[in-house]
Simulated assay, not measured.
Amino acid sequence: MSRYRLGTIVFAMGALLSVAAGAQDYPTKPITLIVPWPAGGSTDLSMRAIADSASKVLGQPIVIDNKAGGSGTVGPATMAAAAKPDGYTIAQIPITVFRLPLMQEVSWDPAKDFTYIVHLTGYTFGVTTSAESQFKSWKDVVDFAKANPGKVTYATPGTGTSLHIGMEQIAAMSGIKLTQVPFKGGAETNAAVLGQHTMLQADSTGWRPLVDAGKLKLLMVWTGARSPNYPDVPTLKELGYPMIYDSPFGVAGPKGMDPKIVAKLHDAFKKAVEDPAVIATLAKYDMVPNYKNTEDYKKFVVEVTESERKVIDTLGLAKK
């Protein structure tokens, strides 16, 4: 055997052993978890609790990096384009990552550009209005919108989010026209409706402190059953809309991650959503664990993409 060929084989074996050792020793430094929403919102706070618990299992800190914008897609898209698949950069994956490519040209392919790790939980969504608003119920909104087409404005955390799509479905079923005002996240939508810059807010439970303080009024929730925190507030189904919206989410990394590293991350995050302290934090925002393992999460991505395609087509929002 030639020295060149022998050297090539030795080098290749060394590289393979190095990769294997890397996966075996992982993690050896802090992990960055991209949260594609502003700091202080319900997603940010819940992901911080989950990350803190998972970091104790992994033995390394998980550092939150807030990259807001693009209806929750800027962070994952940045990761997919630039991060190494070494397990040290991962991201929360909102449902807009699957939906937005159906609506417009984007830089990522959800079927090819991510390594899906674990599915975690979902949201309680609701529609609020200022406590000083003329609207005391959802019926008041519908009646006003029928008399004033397009004049009812609502704040969302971005175009293409579940809040935007859900509100457009509700409007279509009600025979009314509503006007969306997109923002980057819950802090901004709270400010918009609180200051009556928009008439309504459609968002997850980052509004809860303001509702509890009597500054905002909760008109509806989008869960299957009434919230135990707001037993007097009707669900979508009770108002005549046969829908449940909880926009479930999980965690993924860039494409090409080592399955052994994926397994370590999966196990740590699974233990995190079983942690009583994490469950208590999620409960503050009406969120409950919705665990799916890696394989089931991959299947879910395919299923939710197809179901979203049908909704987008029905609403006439599909890209041309």
Results as ranks from 00 to 15, higher is better:
Leu239Ser: 05
Leu218Pro: 03
Thr205Ser: 13
Gly224Tyr: 14
Met243Thr: 11
Gln180His: 13
Val262Leu: 08
Val278Trp: 00
Asn190Gly: 01
Gln180Pro: 01
Lys237Ala: 13
Leu178Ser: 00
Glu308Gly: 08
Gly206Trp: 12
Gln201Pro: 07
Pro259Phe: 00
Leu210Ile: 09
Ser204Asn: 15
Ser204Ile: 13
Tyr297Arg: 06
Thr189Lys: 03
Lys264Pro: 05
Glu308Thr: 11
Ser247Glu: 11
Thr189Cys: 04
Ala272His: 01
Tyr245Ser: 14
Thr294Leu: 07
Glu274Asn: 10
Gly186Gln: 03
Leu178Trp: 02
Trp207Leu: 12
Val221Asn: 02
Pro231Glu: 14
Pro231Gly: 14
Gly175Leu: 04
Ile261Gln: 09
Thr205Lys: 13
Pro182Val: 02
Thr314Arg: 15
Asp296Gly: 13
Pro242Ile: 08
Val211Ser: 07
Val233Gly: 09
Val304Tyr: 03
Val288Arg: 15
Leu216Asp: 09
Met287Ala: 10
Met257Ile: 03
Val233Thr: 14
Gln201Ala: 14
Thr198Tyr: 10
Arg226Asp: 10
Arg208Trp: 12
Leu210Ser: 13
Gly224Trp: 15
Pro254Thr: 05
Gln180Asp: 15
Leu200Val: 01
Gly250Val: 02
Val181Tyr: 11
Ala192Lys: 03
Met257Leu: 07
Ala280Phe: 03
Ile261Tyr: 08
Ala225Arg: 15
Ala191Ser: 13
Leu210Asp: 14
Val301Arg: 01
Pro234Ala: 08
Thr179Ile: 03
Leu315Trp: 04
Trp207Ser: 14
Lys310Tyr: 10
Asp232Val: 10
Gly214Glu: 07
Asn293Pro: 03
Glu295Lys: 15
Pro242Met: 08
Val302Asn: 12
Leu178Lys: 00
Glu188His: 09
Glu274Gly: 04
Val302Phe: 06
Phe249Pro: 02
Phe300Lys: 08
Lys284Leu: 08
Phe269Ala: 07
Ile312Gly: 02
Tyr241Phe: 15
Val278Ile: 01
Thr305Ser: 12
Leu236Arg: 12
Asn229Ser: 14
Ala252Pro: 00
Leu194Asn: 06
Phe249Tyr: 15
Ala280Met: 07
Met220His: 08
Pro234Asn: 09
Asp232Asn: 15
Thr281Gln: 15
Thr281Val: 12
Val278Ala: 05
Phe269Leu: 12
Met287Pro: 01
Asp275Cys: 01
Tyr241Ala: 07
Ala283Lys: 14
Pro276Arg: 03
Arg309Trp: 01
Ala268Glu: 06
Ala252Asp: 05
Val233Asp: 11
Tyr241Pro: 05
Ser227Gln: 13
Ala280Val: 04
Ala272Gln: 06
Tyr241Asp: 08
Thr223Ala: 09
Leu218Ala: 09
Pro259Ser: 02
Glu238Asp: 07
Leu200Phe: 02
Lys217Asn: 10
Ser227Asp: 12
Pro182Asp: 06
Pro276His: 03
Pro276Gln: 04
Met243Asp: 12
Gly253Asn: 08
Glu303Cys: 05
Thr205Cys: 10
Met220Asn: 11
Val211Ala: 12
Pro234Met: 10
His197Ile: 04
Glu274Arg: 07
Gln196Ile: 05
Leu210Glu: 14
Met243Arg: 15
Glu295Leu: 10
Lys237Val: 11
Pro234Tyr: 06
Thr235Gly: 06
Gly175Tyr: 00
Ser204Lys: 14
Ser204Cys: 13
Gly256Asp: 05
Val288Ile: 11
Ala272Met: 05
Pro182Arg: 04
Ser247Met: 04
Val211Thr: 13
Val301Lys: 00
